[in-house]
Computed example of a mutant assay.
Amino acid sequence: MPEILIQYEAQILGAIGETFVMVAVSILAAVLLGLPVGTILYLCRKGQILENRFVFSALNLIVNIIRSFPFLLLVVFLIPFTRLVIGTAIGTAAATVPLSIIAIAHYSRLVEQSLLDVPKGVMEAAISMGASVREIIFKFLYVDARSGLVLGLTTSIISFISYSTIMGVVGGGGIGDFAIRYGYQRFETELMMYMIVIMVILVQLIQFTGTTIARIIDKR
C-alpha cells in the first residue's frame, strides 16, 4: 500500500464509512418513497386506471422543482428543515436529509419512465382478468418493469455518490470531502488522485452489479 494511504488510513476508512451511510440512507429513501411516488405518477397520468389530473400535476410539479434545484443550493435551502428534523444541520446524519429528498425525486422519475415502457397489453390483460389495483402494480407492472427499475436504481445510486461529494459544505464528510480537505487544500495531489481512483472503482462495481442483476431478471 502506498505510504500516503497508510498515513491517512484511519481518515480514509472513516470517509468511506460516511459515504456509505449517506448513500445507504438515500437508497432506502428512494426505494421506500421514490418507488411509490413514481408509481402514483404513472397510475394518475391521463388514460391510466387511477387517472387524476390534480394528483398528477401536484406530484409532477414537486418532483420537477426538486430536480431542477442545483444540489448545493438545495442543501443550503433545506438547512432549517434539516435542523428541525435532525436537531442539527451539521454532520453525516444531517447530510442524509437533502440527499434523501433528491433521491426520492430522482428515482421517482426513473420509476415513472420504466413503467411507461411496460406494453399497454400488460395493463389490458390485467384489467380483463379482474385484477385489483394492488395486483396490477405488484403482479404485472413491477414484474414486467423489474429490469428497468433495477437499472434506474443503479443510475440513481451512482448519482447519490456524486451528490455525497458535495456534503462537506454541511460537515457531512465522505470520500469527496476528504479528497478536497486533505488532497486539494493541502496540495497532496497524490492523495487526491487515490481518492478519485477509489470513487471510480466504487462506481464501476455498482454499475457492473446493477447491469448484471438487470440482465439476469429480464425475461422479456
Rank of each mutant, 00 (worst) to 15 (best):
G210Q: 11
M129C: 12
T155A: 15
V169M: 11
E135Q: 15
V170M: 13
S26H: 04
S156C: 13
L115N: 01
I65F: 12
T209Y: 14
L72D: 06
S164H: 01
I213A: 09
L110Y: 03
Q7Y: 13
S164F: 07
Y8M: 02
Q113F: 14
I27Q: 04
G47D: 04
M123V: 13
S100H: 11
M1K: 11
E3F: 06
M1G: 15
M129A: 11
M123Y: 13
E112S: 10
E124D: 11
I4E: 07
T212Q: 10
Q204R: 11
A24M: 10
I27P: 07
V55W: 04
A145D: 01
V21W: 11
A145L: 02
G171F: 06
G14T: 05
A93Y: 14
F208V: 12
L110S: 04
V21S: 02
I6L: 13
I166Y: 10
E51V: 00
I104A: 03
V76S: 03
P80W: 06
Y182H: 08
S57K: 08
L141R: 09
G174L: 01
V75H: 00
L149T: 06
T209I: 15
G176L: 01
P80L: 05
G168F: 05
V122A: 09
L205D: 00
I101N: 02
Q204T: 08
I180D: 07
C44K: 04
I175M: 13
L115W: 00
E3Y: 02
I86T: 04
G91I: 03
S162E: 12
K46S: 14
I102G: 00
K219I: 15
N64M: 09
L110W: 01
L110V: 07
P80E: 00
A89H: 03
V63H: 09
I166Q: 07
P70A: 05
Y42P: 01
R220V: 06
A214I: 03
F54P: 02
R181F: 10
L73Q: 10
A94K: 00
G87C: 02
E135K: 15
G171Q: 01
G174R: 02
S162F: 06
P70E: 11
L41T: 01
Q185C: 09
R186E: 15
I90P: 05
F187W: 09
I40Y: 11
G17C: 08
I213V: 15
L74I: 07
L43T: 11
I157S: 06
V169T: 12
S26N: 02
L5Y: 04
